[in-house]
Amino acid sequence: MNALYPWQKKDWQALLRERERLPHALLLTGPAGIGKLRFAERLANLLLCETPGSAEPCGECEGCRWFAAGNHPDYRLLTPAEAEEDEDGKTKRKQPVIPVDAVRELEDFVNLTSHRRGVRVTVVAPAETMNVAAANAFLKTLEEPPAGAVFILVAHHWRRLLPTIRSRCRQFPLSLPDHHAAESWLAAEGVVNPQLHLAHMGGAPLAALEDASAPWLAQRNELLQHLANPAALDVIGIAQTLEKTRLDVALVVDWLQKWGHDIVSLGLSGNIRYYPDWRDDLQRLSVRAVPLLEWQKTLLSARKAAHHPLNPRLVYESLLFAYLDALRTRAVKPQ
């Protein structure tokens, strides 16, 4: 059920080479969508496996079977709460955070004797979604847990973690798979155009797999279509459509950021990273690379505020207007 991805074998061996030196708090870092959580779960499984001396979870002992069934009593997984549906059937727009209560409940789990062999494993993924109170409440537990308690933190952006949390953990960076390995894996998963989807996601295979089957593919294509043709960009209309799709603002800002990055990158250095399938349009727009750098700044601040309860439609409108402004500015520059 939780076999490693092919590109993780090396990291796995590197981590277990010094198994007796495994710390009580491990921080797995790396870009989103490369299978960090799977890695963490497998490590948890190994720690809970009751067959002595194994380098892999045996899959046969009681510990492994419980783990596989998802109800091992000495295992906790802390993840942000999913968006809940309230009584009107509306999904609440909820910021994905790990609340402080979840961390406080952890205290009992860690400080009481374990059910099986003394090992209690907690996986926190992604660790940066702990809010300030939760992260602070975690500090004391994380620093000096009773014997046998192990924490595995998973972070996409370790820089967003509190420095006090970082300093208590040993970091273990997981590497991005190289293109060939990722491509062949995606092809084996039945993805039609692996190279393209990998590019869309900056090389992270799991994210690419999601990208290939995401429900919002059509919307992104539509948005890019509009962006590629700024002369006929109907800002109000597009913003309205985007709002109706109820997509996460951060996701849309991410698309725009990648679009902006590609234009600038193509214009200044001739490289395309994210959208190679839009090369012609990017090429046409890339003469305006310089003013679009300013737009990138706007996007960065939009990204910062993406989880704030702003009116998404107004956010989209302002971003698209800024895009048009950036393109126009270039028009008055003497050639």
């Binding site: 870009p31 952006h157 820089r159 967003r160 900056g202 991410d254 950021q257 990648k258 990055h261 600038v264 990158s265 200044l268 250095s269 490289n271 990273r273 994210y274 690379a289 750098l293 990138q296 960065l300 990204r303 910062k304």
Partner: peptide, 16 residues
């Protein structure tokens, strides 16, 4: 860097 789509993009964007 933390706000860029990924770190590579943030880095190259700064260079550009």
């Amino acid at each position: 860097l933390a706000l860029a789509p990924d770190e590579y993009a943030g880095f190259t964007m700064t260079l550009m």
